[in-house]
Simulated assay, not measured.
Amino acid sequence: MIRMLSAALALALALPAAAQEVARADGALLRGLDKISGRTSDIRLGVGEAVRYGRLEVRLGECRYPAGNPSSDAFAQLTVTDLSQNVTLFSGWMIASSPALSALDDARYDVWVISCQS
Protein backbone atom coordinates (compact mmCIF):
# COMPACT_ATOMS: atom_id res chain seq x y z
CA MET A 1 0.00 0.00 0.00
CA ILE A 2 2.80 2.45 0.90
CA ARG A 3 4.59 1.60 -2.36
CA MET A 4 1.45 2.33 -4.33
CA LEU A 5 1.01 5.69 -2.59
CA SER A 6 4.68 6.52 -3.14
CA ALA A 7 4.40 5.65 -6.83
CA ALA A 8 1.25 7.77 -7.21
CA LEU A 9 2.92 10.71 -5.46
CA ALA A 10 6.04 10.40 -7.63
CA LEU A 11 3.89 10.33 -10.77
CA ALA A 12 1.89 13.36 -9.66
CA LEU A 13 5.06 15.34 -8.95
CA ALA A 14 6.58 14.37 -12.29
CA LEU A 15 3.64 15.70 -14.32
CA PRO A 16 3.76 19.42 -15.08
CA ALA A 17 0.93 21.56 -13.79
CA ALA A 18 -1.59 22.45 -16.46
CA ALA A 19 -1.03 26.00 -17.62
CA GLN A 20 -4.01 28.25 -18.05
CA GLU A 21 -4.57 29.21 -21.67
CA VAL A 22 -4.29 32.90 -22.39
CA ALA A 23 -5.45 35.08 -25.26
CA ARG A 24 -3.91 38.27 -26.56
CA ALA A 25 -5.86 41.47 -26.95
CA ASP A 26 -5.36 44.35 -29.37
CA GLY A 27 -5.18 46.91 -26.56
CA ALA A 28 -5.69 47.74 -22.92
CA LEU A 29 -7.60 50.07 -20.66
CA LEU A 30 -5.40 51.63 -18.00
CA ARG A 31 -6.22 54.11 -15.27
CA GLY A 32 -3.95 56.93 -14.21
CA LEU A 33 -4.06 58.90 -10.96
CA ASP A 34 -2.51 62.32 -10.46
CA LYS A 35 -1.82 62.21 -6.71
CA ILE A 36 -1.52 66.01 -6.47
CA SER A 37 -4.89 66.92 -8.04
CA GLY A 38 -6.66 63.66 -7.16
CA ARG A 39 -7.90 63.31 -10.76
CA THR A 40 -8.12 59.94 -12.44
CA SER A 41 -7.99 59.41 -16.18
CA ASP A 42 -8.80 56.37 -18.27
CA ILE A 43 -6.09 55.61 -20.82
CA ARG A 44 -6.86 53.46 -23.86
CA LEU A 45 -3.85 52.08 -25.69
CA GLY A 46 -3.36 49.75 -28.61
CA VAL A 47 -0.52 47.25 -28.60
CA GLY A 48 2.66 49.06 -29.63
CA GLU A 49 1.20 52.50 -28.92
CA ALA A 50 2.38 55.09 -26.45
CA VAL A 51 0.53 57.94 -24.77
CA ARG A 52 1.70 60.90 -22.73
CA TYR A 53 0.24 61.14 -19.23
CA GLY A 54 1.57 64.25 -17.47
CA ARG A 55 5.35 64.01 -17.69
CA LEU A 56 5.15 60.24 -18.27
CA GLU A 57 5.09 58.24 -21.49
CA VAL A 58 3.17 54.97 -21.12
CA ARG A 59 3.80 52.32 -23.80
CA LEU A 60 1.83 49.07 -24.15
CA GLY A 61 3.80 46.08 -25.38
CA GLU A 62 1.16 43.39 -24.93
CA CYS A 63 -2.07 42.59 -23.10
CA ARG A 64 -3.13 39.05 -22.19
CA TYR A 65 -6.17 37.61 -20.42
CA PRO A 66 -7.48 34.13 -19.50
CA ALA A 67 -9.00 32.66 -22.69
CA GLY A 68 -11.89 31.03 -20.87
CA ASN A 69 -12.88 34.13 -18.89
CA PRO A 70 -11.90 37.45 -20.52
CA SER A 71 -13.40 39.60 -17.77
CA SER A 72 -11.56 37.85 -14.92
CA ASP A 73 -8.09 39.39 -15.18
CA ALA A 74 -5.67 41.27 -17.41
CA PHE A 75 -1.89 41.14 -17.69
CA ALA A 76 -0.27 44.09 -19.49
CA GLN A 77 3.36 44.52 -20.45
CA LEU A 78 4.10 48.23 -19.96
CA THR A 79 7.02 50.59 -20.17
CA VAL A 80 6.65 53.89 -18.33
CA THR A 81 9.24 56.60 -18.95
CA ASP A 82 9.69 59.92 -17.16
CA LEU A 83 10.16 62.26 -20.12
CA SER A 84 11.50 65.13 -18.00
CA GLN A 85 14.44 63.02 -16.79
CA ASN A 86 14.57 60.51 -19.68
CA VAL A 87 14.45 57.63 -17.17
CA THR A 88 12.46 54.39 -17.35
CA LEU A 89 10.39 54.20 -14.17
CA PHE A 90 8.70 50.88 -14.90
CA SER A 91 9.23 48.09 -17.38
CA GLY A 92 7.41 44.81 -16.92
CA TRP A 93 4.05 43.15 -16.44
CA MET A 94 1.22 44.69 -14.43
CA ILE A 95 -1.64 42.50 -13.27
CA ALA A 96 -5.12 43.99 -12.96
CA SER A 97 -6.13 41.84 -9.99
CA SER A 98 -2.91 42.60 -8.06
CA PRO A 99 -1.82 46.17 -8.88
CA ALA A 100 0.51 46.40 -5.87
CA LEU A 101 2.41 43.25 -6.88
CA SER A 102 4.18 45.04 -9.73
CA ALA A 103 3.51 48.76 -9.45
CA LEU A 104 4.81 52.00 -10.87
CA ASP A 105 6.89 53.86 -8.28
CA ASP A 106 6.45 57.59 -8.83
CA ALA A 107 5.85 60.40 -6.34
CA ARG A 108 3.12 62.07 -8.41
CA TYR A 109 1.49 59.49 -10.70
CA ASP A 110 0.01 56.03 -10.40
CA VAL A 111 -0.87 53.92 -13.45
CA TRP A 112 -2.56 50.54 -13.28
CA VAL A 113 -4.28 48.03 -15.57
CA ILE A 114 -8.09 47.79 -15.69
CA SER A 115 -8.69 45.33 -18.56
CA CYS A 116 -7.63 44.15 -21.98
CA GLN A 117 -9.55 45.59 -24.94
CA SER A 118 -10.12 43.91 -28.29
Rank of each mutant, 00 (worst) to 15 (best):
I2C: 11
M4R: 15
M4K: 15
S6F: 14
L9V: 11
L11Y: 08
L11G: 06
L11M: 08
L11S: 08
A12R: 11
L13R: 13
L13N: 12
P16I: 12
A18D: 11
A18T: 14
V22T: 14
G27S: 02
A28E: 02
A28W: 00
L29W: 05
L30T: 09
L30W: 01
G32F: 04
G32T: 13
L33S: 05
D34W: 05
S37V: 09
S37H: 05
S37Y: 02
R39T: 15
R39Q: 15
T40A: 04
I43W: 01
R44F: 11
R44D: 13
L45A: 05
G46Y: 01
G46R: 06
V47S: 00
V47K: 00
V51L: 13
R52S: 14
G54R: 03
L56S: 03
E57A: 07
E62S: 11
R64N: 12
G68P: 04
S72L: 08
D73N: 09
F75S: 01
F75A: 07
T81L: 03
T81E: 04
D82L: 08
L83G: 04
L83N: 09
S84Q: 07
Q85S: 15
N86F: 12
V87E: 08
G92M: 07
M94G: 02
M94R: 00
I95L: 04
I95S: 04
A96W: 03
S98Y: 12
S98R: 15
L101T: 10
L101K: 11
S102V: 09
S102G: 02
L104H: 06
R108Y: 03
Y109V: 07
Y109C: 01
D110K: 10
D110Q: 10
D110I: 15
V111A: 03
W112E: 05
I114W: 08
S115D: 08
S118N: 14
